[in-house]
Simulated assay, not measured.
Amino acid sequence: MDPVLDAVLAGSRTGSRTGSTAAPFALATVVATWSSAPRGPGARMLVRADGTAVGSLTGGCVEADVHARALEVLGDGVPQLVRYGVSDDVAGSVGLTCGGTVEILVQRVDDPEVLREFARRVADGAPAALATVVAHDGAVPGASVAVGPAGLVAGGTGSARLDAALAHDAAALVAAGRTGELTYGSDGSRQGVGLRVLVDVAAPPPRMIVAGVTDFAAAVASLAGFLGFRVTLCDARPAFATRERFPDAHEIVVERPDRYLAAELAAGRVDGRTAVLVLTHDPKFDEPLLEVALAADLAFVGAMGSRRTHADRLDRLRDRGVPPEALARLRSPVGLDLGGRSPRETALSVLAEVVAVRARGTGAPLTVTAGPLHHDRRPDEVPHRGYRRRP
């Protein structure tokens, strides 16, 4: 988990034993980035009154200056919203030497209950968001609320209208699993501008369902877990779908993969962030699973096989009634052209394509591309008209 959230929960446990409340601390949060900033919105650093710090904002570029500002904020209680860039003349030429621009909110936290509730939910693996007022004419930045899928669960901004809007809009971002910035009018109305709210979303890890019991599947399960996926290995053959062969899978399911995926979809345990990889090399398992997967709204559906295998598979899927628009979503032969042949090299190729598709990357070498290194999400990916893509 986030080390800052770990520290908040640890302070809560210490306070409960001693009967005291946690001491005030300063919280620095990345609220916006432009171009190739090192870390995205939601990155945090906690600074205590004794000067000790937990967490990181930019990997070391501006931490020393933010630390000094945090101690100032602890002393006077006045929040600071500061922006750093490559050539900024801030605090003795402090800047992002690696490129990009980052905006950081530094605030004093006297009562961490909202942050603590957010941390509890993250620790429990429950989807949640921390919505924080970043800037607003006439208002003090830093007011925050914790939001779950069903709406507001803790805190308040001081505006009932804004709280009601955030209960709905931040919950939509939680459902989508995406951090974003929302904008409102000064009175909390959705039609206006002037009030910025960072909605930092913590969603459970995205799922990856791997069908097949090959060495390639074992390598994919290992690397996918390292990349942050919760990996389910599924195959109908109990002699091969074993923990000994797949030690890195989070769960192993002995079942026909098509039946398992259909049941997970019906139970709501699969969402639009889920990836399905078909590595079985057996049409009687491959094709029923692909028929189910391609009919769902999933992040990625890929299948291993040669180009001839892929062509034959497409013909049979058409015969099964899979429509052309669904077939167009199938990534096969799955993987980027890295030239590797071993199971681990193949797993790297496959997961490189998964990452590229999820992040809308090109898969091309950075030496032949131009523009920002990081891809922003499109505004229409977030179901709220106030979402603003940073230029």
Rank of each mutant, 00 (worst) to 15 (best):
P3I: 00
A10V: 00
S16T: 10
R17N: 01
T18M: 06
G19R: 08
S20M: 07
S20L: 07
T21Q: 09
F25M: 01
R39W: 04
R48C: 09
D50P: 06
A53N: 05
V54P: 00
S56W: 00
T58S: 15
C61A: 14
E63M: 01
A64Q: 13
D65L: 12
L71M: 12
L71E: 12
L71K: 14
E72T: 15
L74H: 02
L74C: 08
D76F: 04
L81T: 05
R83W: 08
R83P: 04
S87W: 03
V90W: 03
V94D: 02
G95W: 05
T97M: 12
C98G: 08
G100W: 01
E103V: 09
E103W: 04
L105R: 03
Q107K: 14
V109I: 08
E117I: 00
L130V: 01
L130K: 08
A131N: 09
H136I: 03
G138A: 05
G138F: 13
V140W: 07
G142D: 01
V145W: 03
A146H: 06
A146C: 15
V147T: 01
V153G: 04
D163F: 13
A164M: 07
A171I: 04
A172T: 10
L173S: 11
L173R: 05
A175W: 02
A175F: 07
A176E: 13
A176C: 11
T183A: 14
Y184W: 10
S186W: 14
D187H: 15
R190C: 15
V193G: 14
V199C: 14
R207G: 15
M208N: 11
V210A: 12
A211S: 13
G212K: 04
T214V: 13
A221G: 08
L223D: 01
G228P: 00
F229S: 01
L233N: 10
R237F: 01
A239Y: 02
R245Q: 07
P247V: 02
H250Y: 03
H250P: 03
E255G: 07
P257M: 08
E264I: 05
L265V: 02
L265G: 09
G268H: 07
G268S: 13
G268C: 02
V270W: 02
V278G: 11
F285Q: 06
E287V: 07
L290K: 07
L290I: 02
A293S: 03
L294I: 06
D297C: 02
G302V: 06
G302R: 04
A303L: 05
A303H: 00
A303C: 12
S306N: 07
R307A: 13
R307G: 03
R316C: 10
P324F: 08
P324H: 13
A328C: 12
R329A: 10
G335Y: 12
V350N: 12
V350A: 14
V354C: 14
V354S: 11
V355K: 05
A359T: 15
R360N: 14
G361M: 10
T362Q: 08
T362V: 05
G363Y: 11
P365R: 08
T367Q: 11
A370N: 09
D376H: 15
P379C: 12
P379D: 14
H384C: 06
H384L: 12
Y387R: 15
R388E: 13
